[in-house]
Nucleic acid binder design. Structure first.
Lengths: 157, 157
DNA sequence: CATATTTATATGAAAATTCATATTTCCTGT
DNA sequence: ACAGGAAATATGAATTTTCATATAAATATG
């Protein structure tokens, strides 16, 4: 089996390994903004929850967990904390009483919207340092990778 | 400011957000292999340490931490555990007595080499599901992103 | 060459995370 | 309507992780 053609061919494996590149790129790209999130008094998973709810309020825990890339039992705990803090409100779903739906409070929504705006601005800066349309291309490639790997179930829509 | 042209334009932010795409792609792409790593009795950071040491044995803690994407004080603890388990050996650097260099034991090297082989195989499968040369392109894009964001210091080489 | 800085690693307490499993509700086939 | 299983969420104990800081060695500075 042939080696891939990325590493400086000093024989090293890690620097050209796809999973390393993905993790390292994610880390590096997120570092600044995540630091900003922390100065706003949020942990990264909390920011993700706010952003997801800002897209779709009233999501159930399981769905939120998938979208926010958080394991379910952990999310349950985070949601409880965010509730105590007044950022979200949990409410049983009458349609299916196993479900708990999570809604932004006014305070939560305000914070979410502020941070999403910051995120958009920051993303623009990132994309600009990615010379010439590369940004759009990398996004497309990533989405396609994600779709192939984690086919969204139909009820996901 | 214009919105980017990726999401299905249902007005949602998250699905087209670069940092989300990076994190989600990293998660999705790594899931299978990381599960494999766990069946080998390793946690993900431990696998990363082995892979990095397999590339460059005798790295110092700080360097290892940067490469393996692990925070320093955490790595110190992981290294201690891996030492107790016989996978690595720690040794003070006589050149600079603050430094601790980490070396693979024979057992550690054997495990590292086995897993790197598995990783190569798995990576091939991933790249194949990424039709037509897309794999090479995405790798290039990610490396370039990383380089722009985290310029390696000269002594890093 | 003494002192201030910086660099490398370690440490401990607080907090977060994981993992397995409990609980409740819903769904399915009979 | 009922048994069995599946789905959604919660829980608790064990383990990890984080964060701030300690220690120690090297380097820079006046």
């Amino acid at each position: 089996m042939e080696r891939q053609g990325l590493e400086a061919d000093t024989g090293e494996f890690v620097p050209g390994y796809l999973l390393y590149l993905l993790a390292a790129a994610s880390d590096a790209a997120s570092a600044q903004f995540h630091a900003h999130v922390r100065t706003e008094g949020l942990r990264v998973p909390e920011w993700r929850v706010l952003a997801c709810l800002n897209d779709r309020d009233g999501a159930m825990i399981t769905r939120l967990a998938r979208f926010a890339l958080i394991e379910q039992s952990r999310l349950t705990k985070i949601i409880i904390q965010m509730g105590e803090r007044g950022l979200i409100r949990r409410q049983g779903d009458p349609e299916d009483r196993r479900r708990v739906r999570v809604y932004l409070t006014d305070e939560g929504r305000a914070l979410a919207q502020r941070l999403v705006a910051d995120a958009r601005t920051h993303e623009q800066k990132l994309l600009q340092m990615l010379e010439g349309g590369d940004g759009a291309r990398i996004k497309l490639a990533l989405s396609s990778l994600i779709e192939r790997l984690a086919p969204p179930s139909e009820n996901e829509k």
